[in-house]
Every structure is written in structure tokens, then in C-alpha cells.
């Protein structure tokens, strides 16, 4: 199943990689034995800036949905300081975690992968006890990023933590799909915008060497939030210096697409918040955001968490579960992957 399918879908991914973010570079020229096929076909990062908005719930259930549609899915709990994805999946305290991999050099990534009980869905649990688990060092982060890019799966889902630390953002922007979870409330929207801005500027920063726009990006980043220079401004300045470079830069920025998931929508109006946010974002920053759809507020989801089971398995017919399935199939549609009939 894999080879034929991965052929056609290869192209866009290659494009994305070719964007030349430093993080992806090393992998491209990675170990000789590691062919392209060894890499996950798609990386989905689930972030959102604010805590408690359902990132882990979305990640877990999305993983289940994708696994149920016949794909091999690897969930990674990249919420370094507050790992709990395993609980969402009912895995219990995992024996091996990410910190085993990061800290003890003995471990290969494969060694810390634990099964979840859902076919084709496996998990790398987050670091548990280490006091400084959240403070990933740069070298560790690079190692992790590289290794994750080399992981074998159809889909790699990264469950990110709250906040906009580089440790979070860097995982977010290396993904093919940056899922931005947002609740229809000001606090969450505010953080989501900040997260998205941070992601774009971080990406700019990573590209700055290439375009000689380092100082521009720096000044943009150090500006106060209120007067945060927009990407328009940055692009404009780059264009003045280097029209061709600006052209490419613009393309590359546009290629990085944030996809919105509105969680816990309680009213019909809430269902449209995603569209509104995407359109406001585009209006002011000129960058497209996709609205993947909303997940209704659902007591079933809450009950499922209490039971430590993904709602998709616990109550597959609940509104929340259906919404997640819709989101999963939209992602698959975007990737142009026909849902396999059989695993």
C-alpha cells in the first residue's frame, strides 16, 4: 500500500521540504541508508498557544481517526512540560518516554514507541519526571527534530504544549499541517494569533540567513506586540533590497499554511469563528489560513476523557467524534490521499 500511495503524494512534501528550513535540511541529507520512504509522509503539529483548549484531545482523536482510516500513525507528545497524551489514549504510565530517548543515548526512537491499543496507532509519550523536561536544550531539540523527521509512519502527529516558546514553535513550523486549535473565546483567540505570528516570524528568522534579512526580522521580532510589524512590512523591505528574493520568500511563507480547528463551539455562531478568524488573518496579513471545521462542545468528549479513552472510540457517534472525523478526512483530502478501504 505504501509505495504506490506515497509516490503521488511525495511531490508536495518534497516541495515543502525544499523550502529549506534549516530543521529539515539535515534530514534531507540524512543518513544514506535512510531513504525518503523512511520519513513520515505527513507531519501534523497541533498547537494553539493557550493551555486547556483541547490540543491533546484533538491530537489523540485525530490520530485515532487517521489510524482508523487505514494509515500508520505515530503520535508524539511534544508537550514537554505537561505530557498527558498517553492519558488521553488510556495508555497509563508509559514505560518509555521521550526523555529516555533524549537523555540516554542508548535509545533509538523505535525503543520508546509504545502501542496504544488502537491498530496502527502508536505513541511516543512525553517526558515524565525529569525536572527540566520542559527545557529542551538546543542540541536535544535538533536531535529530536531530526529523528522525528526520520520516523516511519504515514502520519506523524505532534501534540505541542501551550505557549510560544521556540521549543514549541519549531515543532510547529516543521509540520506540513500546522493545526491551530482555538476556542471561541477572546483569551484563546488572542493566544492563537500570537502563536501564529510567532510561528511566521520564527520561520522568517530561519530563512533570514538565506535572504539576508536578519536585521529586518530581528527588528520585527523585537517590536512591541501592539505595533508588531506585519509580514507585509518585512516583505516590502526585502523587496526593496532583493525583489527576487522577496518573491521566493513570499511563496515560501504562503506555502506554510496554518489550519484552524475551533474546539468547544457551543453556539452556531461559534461554528463560524474559524472562518472569521481565517478571514481576518488574511485581511490583515495577507496569509491564507484554512478553517478545518469546528468541534462542538460535547459532554461526551468530557466523559471520554474522564474514562481516559478517546471519544472516537468511546462514542464514535457523538458530535465531537463526528467532527474530528470530518477534520481527518479534510486533511486527507488536502493531502490528496484516498482513504484506503483496507489497511
Amino acid at each position: 500500500m505504501r509505495p504506490p500511495m506515497s509516490k503521488p503524494s511525495r511531490a508536495p512534501l518534497a516541495d515543502a521540504r525544499a523550502l529549506g528550513t534549516p530543521t529539515s535540511e539535515p534530514v534531507q541529507s540524512g543518513p544514506p541508508g535512510l531513504g525518503r520512504r523512511a520519513r513520515p509522509r505527513r507531519i501534523i503539529a497541533v498547537g494553539g498557544g493557550k493551555g486547556g483548549i483541547g490540543k491533546s484531545m484533538v491530537s489523540a482523536n485525530l490520530g485515532v481517526a487517521l489510524a482508523q482510516s487505514g494509515l500508520n500513525v505515530l503520535l508524539v507528545d511534544a508537550d514537554l512540560g505537561g505530557a498527558n497524551l498517553h492519558t488521553c489514549l488510556g495508555v497509563g504510565q508509559p514505560e518509555a518516554t521521550l526523555s529516555d530517548f533524549l537523555r540516554r543515548n542508548k535509545a533509538r526512537l523505535e525503543d520508546v514507541i509504545v502501542p496504544t491499543g488502537v491498530p496502527r496507532l502508536s505513541l511516543i509519550a512525553g517526558a515524565q519526571d525529569a525536572l527540566d523536561a520542559a527545557n529542551l536544550k538546543y542540541a536535544q531539540k535538533q536531535k529530536l527534530l531530526k529523528t522525528l523527521l526520520g520516523a516511519q509512519a504515514d502520519y506523524l502527529i505532534l501534540d505541542l504544549g501551550a505557549g510560544t516558546s521556540f521549543n514549541t514553535i519549531d515543532f510547529f513550523i516543521m509540520a506540513d499541517h500546522g493545526l491551530l486549535v482555538v476556542l471561541p473565546e477572546p483569551t484563546s483567540v488572542e493566544n492563537a494569533y500570537r502563536f501564529a505570528k510567532a510561528a511566521f516570524f520564527r520561520r522568517l528568522q530561519q530563512m533570514e540567513a538565506e535572504y539576508g534579512i536578519g536585521d529586518l526580522v530581528d527588528s520585527a521580532l523585537t517590536t512591541r506586540e501592539g505595533s508588531l510589524r506585519t509580514l507585509h512590512d518585512v516583505l516590502e523591505q526585502v523587496r526593496r533590497k532583493d525583489p527576487v528574493g522577496a518573491e521566493r520568500l513570499e511563496r515560501e511563507l504562503a506555502a506554510f499554511r496554518i489550519r484552524l480547528v475551533v474546539n468547544q463551539a457551543r453556539t452556531d455562531a461559534d461554528l463560524n469563528v474559524g472562518t472569521a478568524v481565517a478571514s481576518a488573518w488574511k485581511k490583515f496579513f495577507g496569509i491564507d489560513m484554512d478553517d478545518l471545521g469546528a468541534i462542538r462542545y460535547d459532554d461526551e468528549a468530557w466523559r471520554a476523557v474522564r474514562k481516559r479513552r478517546p471519544v472516537l472510540i468511546e462514542r464514535p457517534d457523538s458530535p465531537a467524534a463526528l467532527a474530528i472525523q470530518r477534520i481527518a478526512s479534510r486533511l486527507l483530502a488536502i493531502d490528496g490521499t484516498p482513504i484506503p478501504a483496507t489497511p
Binding site: V189, Y193, V273, A276, W281
Partner: peptide, 12 residues
Amino acid sequence: LYAPDSIAVYAL
């Protein structure tokens, strides 16, 4: 959508 109290433009 762009009303001052609209959530979509909050903090944007």
C-alpha cells in the same frame, strides 16, 4: 466580522 467587539479581530 470586524466589529470592535468581534472575537476574530481581538488582539489581532
